[in-house]
């Protein structure tokens, strides 16, 4: 643990009492042939140690881009962060020089992706790739690095880790590969783990294994976990708080129990009513008409208004402000009362 403290001290302006992760008014644009795609338009998020924040949304809502901007792995060009701050313990990561960011990426904020096979290098054994992390970032010896690699594989519950450490990524099944990627992400004891659709490519029984592993590891390490997903079932099982994104904005943010029981944004409510349920057969699904908007051409006012059952003139004209309707509950909907039914 000493090395970690050393790194913490090395980051100028770091305040251990400041919030773990705070994204403030983040804006990201992609400049493409078809025009400027405004992928993220003023996102505000915060994350505490030991907490699971789920960022929920459909494809193109900006959830993955937000994560990439936090990690500093945005493809630039065409992507550009055009505004806002990403504060890690009070330090604005967006203003750090690239060399410092690289250290933050390895040691403090780690990320896992949907596709584990392409995230691992196929020509090296998983043991080598894990050990390399320790050798490069911690300067440990070869032998010690390998010992810790085995220990990590053990922690992510890969059976027979001592033998499997010398296997190549393609020799692992999909679920086991995801475990290896988790091990790589956790190798340097990060305080924040961002998981971008970590189980989308997996079967349900394997998905359950991985989610329970992530939950256990998070508890043991008191990590902040930011879970990016479109799956409202997974979210309900693991999240503490949920931020629902639509067209590059967080439209509603709330503790998990509240949002499922009383969604306070027309989009959240419609989304919950449109999914088939395992626990009852139900009648015809409630459909959200239309399509998510093209990011090059986001509707005026509230971006959801062309698809919204509650929409009226004001929704087309004015972007809804963020209403604080309860402690930790924020929603950007003009008709929050009607949606809540109060």
């Amino acid at each position: 643990m000493n090395e970690i403290t050393a790194h913490v001290d090395a980051l100028p302006g770091l305040d251990p009492r400041a919030p773990l992760l705070h994204v403030e008014d983040l804006h990201v644009e992609f400049r493409t042939r078809d025009g400027v795609a405004r992928a993220v338009n003023g996102v505000n998020l915060w994350l505490n140690p030991g907490e699971t924040l789920a960022v929920l949304g459909e494809s193109g809502c900006g959830k993955s881009v937000t994560a990439q901007a936090i990690m500093g792995i945005l493809d630039t060009p065409p992507g550009h962060v055009t505004g806002g701050r990403v504060l890690y313990r009070g330090v604005d990561l967006l203003r750090l020089p690239e060399s410092e960011r690289r250290k933050v990426r390895a040691n403090r904020i780690a990320m896992i992706f949907q596709d584990a096979l392409s995230a691992l290098n196929p020509v090296y054994t998983v043991g080598f790739q894990l050990a390399e992390l320790f050798r490069v970032h911690r300067g440990t010896s070869r032998r010690e690095a390998k010992r810790r690699a085995i220990e990590l594989l053990d922690q992510v519950r890969i059976p027979d880790a001592r033998r499997r450490v010398d296997d190549y990524p393609h020799e692992f099944s999909g679920g086991m590969r995801q475990r290896v990627m988790i091990a790589m992400a956790l190798a340097l004891d990060p305080e924040v783990l961002i998981a971008d659709e970590p189980t989308t490519a997996l079967d349900v029984t394997v998905q359950a294994q991985i989610m329970s592993l992530l939950a256990d590891l998070q508890r043991e390490r008191n990590m902040g976990l930011m879970l990016i997903t479109h799956d409202m079932g997974v979210v309900a099982d693991v999240a503490d708080r949920i931020a629902v994104m639509y067209a590059g904005k967080v439209v509603e943010e709330a503790p998990v129990y509240d949002i499922y029981a009383h969604p306070a944004h027309a989009y959240t409510k419609a989304l919950l009513e449109s999914i088939p349920r395992l626990d009852h057969k139900g009648q015809a699904l409630n459909v959200i008409r239309g399509l998510p908007p093209a990011l090059t051409d986001i509707p005026t006012g509230c971006a959801f208004h062309p698809r919204c059952a509650y929409a009226r003139e004001i929704c087309r004209l004015e972007p809804p402000p963020a209403y604080q309707i309860a402690p930790h509950r924020v929603t950007s909907c003009h008709f929050v009362r009607e949606v809540l039914g109060v």
């Binding site: 349900v204 998905q207 079932g233 309900a236 499922y260 349920r277």
Partner: peptide, 18 residues
Amino acid sequence: AVPVPDPRLRGRRDHIML
């Protein structure tokens, strides 16, 4: 193993981990 979109079921469901 199928996640159900209802947080109230958390910890109350019969989870069989294969």
